[in-house]
Amino acid sequence: MKRLRTVQRVKGRGKVDHSATPAAKSPVERRSAPSPSRRYGGPIEQVRADQQLVSEETELPETYGETKIVLVPVHPFLVHVYWDLSPEHLTKIISRKRRSRSSKGPWPTLRFYDTTGSGDAEVQGDSFDVDVELQAMNWYVHIWKPARSYVVELGLRTAQGKFIPIARSDGARVAPASPSKSREERYLLVTGDYEQVEPVSPAPAAPLPQTREAPAHSAEACPNFSEPEGWFLGSEPWPVPDAPTSAIEEAHAVTIQSISSPFPGYRKAE
């Protein structure tokens, strides 16, 4: 076996299905090649019975009996959701399902809200639903809009289309898949142990010599300022399905705006 591969960084090129994916059936793509932080010993391992834990229990609980839902971003196009239900909630859901005569409902559903720029308290606006199996207790969901914030609710969707929420997650921000379009420049002076933190304007202090040809701020002028071609998911041929979230794009400017005024009296660099 050529195990030297263990120090290799491998950039994936896998095709990933964009449909919502039950975690138990369709795995997030796993790569055989490990990350560069590989540092553990060879293929052998010692499994010991006697090391068992000094504890009466040998398995972790399947449920903690508290209703909650947690949203964790995995990469720019994938999030993981897990949930747990209190016995009371579970009983209510089961009885509600029994009462329903329709074969279609009420169905356990994850409702995702795009909360970019609005904070996770706001769940108005664009949303999309993913049907899940309640007992799976976790789900991987492919998303098509990276660099955004989402909140997810676990609930029941009735045959009439009504959504009955059970639990709501906190907001989670999904990583961007490409460099930002914003090239705004603001500068900060920081000295010592934060003895002085103040905006500096205009900056940078020293102007570029006239003899230099390229505009310094241009990534095109110096390829080293950009990430390499094909860098992590950046140029993956991700198909972009028609999103039920048509208005999402506009919110981008709001995000930038909220970031760009942290300093009172701060002047934009010329």
Partner: peptide
């Protein structure tokens, strides 16, 4: 700096 640049190495099935 994990494989594929995000959290997949530590968060998968």
């Amino acid at each position: 700096w994990g494989n594929r640049g995000f959290s997949e190495v530590w968060q998968n099935r």
